[in-house]
Structure formats: C-alpha cells, structure tokens
C-alpha cells in the first residue's frame, strides 16, 4: 500500500464549539490506483487530504487521533523537516482554484523551476529548461514563448494545467487533486481530466481525486469512497457503486441526478440539510435524512460492514439498501 489512513480524527476549535470535521476515516491507495473521495461541502474530504499533505491549519485544526502511513512511515510522527522533504517530492497536491494557488507576481516558469531549484539543487538556467519541458508535457502551446508569462495571462484551463505540471514536476508517487475541475467549463474540464488520467498512468502514481461531482469520477476512478459528516459511509469499486449503491446516502445522490428518462418530472431529492459539524446527530449521522432510518440508527453508530470482498457500507441496513432498487 502506498498510503493508508487509519482511524483519522480531526477537529476544529471554533468560537461556537468544537467542529468534528473528520471522525475516524480509513482509506488506502495503492500505486497506480485512482481513489475518488466523494462528498458534499463539510463532509471532511478536503480536511482529510490536508492532514495527509500536512498543510492543515493548526490551530484551529487539531489531529485528535489516527495514523497516516505513507510507504510504511507514519507521517504524523515525522519531524516537520522530514515531512517537508516528502511534500512536493513524494506527494503533491492540485487545488481547485488555480489562480489563487499560483503566485501572481512570479512568472509560471519561475514557479515551476523553483521545484527543481529547491528540491534538486539545480541552477536557475537548468530549472527553466525543465519548466519548459513540463509545460510541453501538459500541452501548453508555445511553451518556450510562454514560460515567462504570469498566471493572469493564462486561461483557467491552462492554469490548471500548470498546477498539474507543478504537481508532476518531481514525479511524486502520490497526487491529491482537490476538486481539480470544479471551476472549469465542461469542455475544458474534459481536457484536464484526460490529461490527469494520462499522466497518472504514465507515471504509475497513486491519485486521490476529491470531488462532489459523481459524473467526473465515473470515467477515471478505480475505487470510490463516499464521505458524509466526517466519516466514510461507503467504499466500493466504481462499477458496483453506480449499479447498486449499498448506502442510502450514495443512493440518494445518484438518484438526484437528472436522468434522461424522467425529464420534466420531479427530481428525487435527499430531504433535509447536511449536518452541522458542531452537533453531529447521534448514531448514524445520516439518519435524520434517511428514508430507511429505524430506531437503531438513532442510537448506534454503524460500523463499516463488509458487503463483499471489496465493498464496505456504514449502514445497518445495507442489505435492504442493496436489494431495494
């Protein structure tokens, strides 16, 4: 296993109380595998990623427990210098908003080259050559001429390519992409996802793809982990989850997508609102919104039941959920 997150707990101390953002997340990514982490805002998907990268704001954030194993080292026990060496070289992150993640006063060439100067000790000149190579690789037209351009001179899709180039620069073994295409238009979104998938295959990297869009992941992911209120509620290989979800939340999300055969009719909607992280409902956090909830759901937190070899569902009634179609 390339990366293994075990029972991770993260809290945020706010004025109004303690927000439990991540409550015991377990997942793992193998080399060359794409794991999609799916969830709504506030489900803890980005916080988990930040904890893995070691870029969580602490305070107000606090890791209350758990382990993050990366190549058999517990990242949470490493010294800051050791983590810094891993970050960028062995794991890298791509953010949603490329414009605000790039430095507006440095040319993209400088920013790309900096990776080589800092981590590889290259000279500025060599780094520039490398930067051009990278820009070519992510298919930015006329890379040689544009290497001195500033981020604002590029379009949204191009900026996201530059972010990808930056993440790929040192050929890390793990990339975390946090909503990489959410800010982009559909036609550009398709280009960027293709590029990401292609480079991932080429370098045989592990990829964690964080998203709220069920459509984006269907093509590229190998496995999906669905998060709700800081927990994983279902993990499964991609095919199975779309065909027969084993958790009512996943099912609700899939059903609420407008389908071709029911245009004009009322859409299925998951009732209610996502939970307030300051007051997560007792028992199963999804029970106030769940059509299948029973008394047991209000009191007992469901463990991750084993559905089959590769599938897990945190629902007391996963069998019923699977059967009822």
């Amino acid at each position: 296993m390339l990366l293994e997150v075990r029972d991770l707990h993260v809290e945020f101390h706010t004025r109004d109380g303690v927000a439990k953002a991540v409550n015991g997340v377990n997942y793992s990514v193998a080399e060359g595998e794409t794991l999609a982490v799916l969830g709504e805002s506030g489900s803890g998907k980005s916080v988990t990623a930040q904890a893995i990268m070691g870029i969580l704001d602490m305070p107000p954030g606090k890791i209350r427990g758990g382990e993050i194993f990366f190549r058999d080292r517990d990242l949470l026990k490493l010294k800051p210098e050791e983590r810094r060496r891993i970050r960028g070289q062995e794991m890298a992150m791509i953010f949603q908003d490329a414009l605000s993640s790039l430095n507006p006063v440095l040319s993209v060439g400088q920013q790309l080259g900096e990776m080589f100067v800092v981590h590889r000790g290259m000279s500025r000149g060599d780094a520039k050559v490398k930067a051009i190579e990278l820009m070519d690789r992510v298919r930015i037209p006329a890379a040689r001429q544009r290497v001195g351009d500033f981020p604002h001179q590029f379009s949204g899709g191009m900026r996201q390519r530059i972010m990808i180039a930056m993440a790929m620069a040192l050929e890390p073994s793990l990339i975390i992409a946090d909503e990489p295409t959410t800010a982009l238009d559909v036609t550009v979104q398709a280009q960027v996802m293709d590029l990401l998938a292609e480079l991932q295959r080429e370098l045989n990297m592990g990829l964690i793809l964080i998203t709220h869009d069920l459509g984006v992941v269907a093509d590229v992911a190998d496995r999906i982990a669905v998060m709700y209120a800081g927990r994983i509620v279902e993990t499964s290989p991609v095919h199975e989850i779309y065909k027969a979800p084993a958790h009512p939340y996943t099912k609700g999300l899939l059903r609420s997508i407008p389908r071709l055969d029911q245009k004009g009719q009322e859409l299925y909607a998951v009732k209610g609102l996502p939970p307030n992280l300051l007051h997560i409902p007792p028992g199963c956090a999804f029970h106030p919104r769940c059509p299948m909830a029973q008394a047991v759901c209000r009191t007992d937190v469901p463990p991750l039941y084993t559905v089959d070899e590769e599938r897990r569902s945190a629902c007391h009634f996963w069998k019923e959920t699977l059967d009822e179609r």
């Binding site: 709504e40 407008p258 909607a269 009732k271 996502p274």
Partner: peptide, 14 residues
C-alpha cells in the same frame, strides 16, 4: 451542494 440542488430544482419546477 448536490443533494440540495435537486430540492431547489423541484421547487422551481413546481
């Protein structure tokens, strides 16, 4: 959010 979108679309449609 995805689960809320459907609620609002239904409202608008109504």
């Amino acid at each position: 959010d995805v689960s809320i979108q459907a609620q609002v679309v239904n409202l608008l449609q109504k």
